Computed example of a mutant assay.
Amino acid sequence: MKNSSKPLDWHGDEIFGPASGNNPHNDAPNVDYVKNKFLNIPYGEISNSQKLDIYMPNIKRFDKCPVIINIHGGAFFGGDKYDGQLKPMLEALNEGFAVVSINYRLSPEERWPAQIEDVMASIDFIKKNSDFYRLDNEKIILWGGSAGGHLSALAGVLRTDILAVIDWFGPINFLTMDEQWKKIGIDGEKHNHLNSFESFLMRAQITRIPEIVKKTNPETYITKDLKTKFFIQHGLKDSIIPYLQSKNFSDELSAYIGSENVYYEELPEAVHGDRGGFFSSKENLEKIFNFIKKYL
C-alpha cells in the first residue's frame, strides 16, 4: 500500500510513494528476544516523527556499547524505524553493538532540510544521553539504504564525530542520476522531472534550483580533514538509483581521504533494496562488521 501526499507548499501533482508508519509493510523483525530496549524515545520537540528506538545487546558488560544508527530508506517519502530495513542492522547486537533506529520527518510532512536536521538531532541526543543508556559516544556508526544511505553519507561528511558510514545504494548527487542511466544503459527511474521524489523533497523541480540541490550532495562537503570511514555497496542491476552514484562518491572520497579509508563494492546481481538478500547475507554482514571493528 502506498501513501499519497499534496502539501500546501507543493505545486506539482499528488505524489504517491512508499508507506510510512509503524511496521508499514508488516515485515518488521521480531524484537521480543531483545531484553533491554527503549522504544519511541523523543529526541526532538518539533514533530511526533522525531523518535528513536534503542536496542541493547543481551550480554552483561561494564563498558559502554559502540552504536549503530539505522536510518531507514523510502525515497525520503516513506519507511519507518520499525520495518524490514531494520533486520540486518539488528544482527549487530550479536557483535556487541547497540542499535539505534530513528524516524525523521518525511517529505510529505516537511521539505528539505528537515530530514538531515533530524538525523543530526538524533545523533546529538545519543551523545548527550550516552551515559544513561550506556552508549559509547565516540564510536557511532551510521547505516542506511537508499534515502537512508544518502542521509548517512551526508551526516558522515558534515560531522567530525562519526566513526564510520555504511551506505547501501544511496543517491548522492540528485542532478546527475538521469544522465548516468544513459551512460550505463539502464532505463531507470527518472529524477529530474517536477514530480520526482527528489523534487517533491525540495518542493521545486531540482533542475531549476541547482545551487540549493548542491547543498544536499555529500560530495560538496568532503575535505582532506574528514575522519569518517566509508563502506559503500551498490547493485549493478539497480534501476532506481544508478550505481555510478556510489562509484563516483567513493572515488571522490578516496581522492581526499585515501582509498584505505573507503571500501567500495559493486554487487553484480543486486537490484535496489535487498531483494535476493545480497546485502543482508551472513557473508556480507560479516564483511561489514569486520570493516567496522577495524576502527573501534
Rank of each mutant, 00 (worst) to 15 (best):
D83W: 11
Q85Y: 08
K87F: 14
L90V: 02
L90Q: 06
E95M: 12
V100N: 00
V100P: 02
I102K: 05
P108E: 01
E110D: 12
E110H: 12
E110L: 08
P113H: 01
V119N: 01
M120I: 15
F125D: 01
I126M: 00
K128P: 07
S130K: 02
S130A: 10
D131A: 13
Y133W: 10
R134D: 05
D136H: 10
E138N: 14
K139E: 07
I140K: 04
I140W: 09
I141T: 04
W143L: 07
G145A: 12
S146K: 09
A147C: 07
G149A: 14
L151E: 09
S152L: 04
S152P: 01
L154N: 07
V157D: 08
R159Y: 02
D161A: 04
L163A: 14
V165M: 06
W168N: 09
W168H: 14
P171H: 05
P171V: 09
F174T: 05
M177S: 12
M177Y: 07
D178A: 01
E179S: 11
W181T: 07
W181A: 03
G185I: 04
G185S: 04
G188Q: 07
K190R: 15
H191Q: 15
N192K: 09
N195Y: 09
F197S: 00
E198R: 11
R203I: 01
A204T: 04
I206K: 00
I209T: 01
P210E: 05
I212S: 13
V213P: 06
K214V: 06
K214Q: 12
K215Y: 13
T216H: 04
P218D: 10
P218A: 06
T220C: 10
D225K: 14
D225I: 07
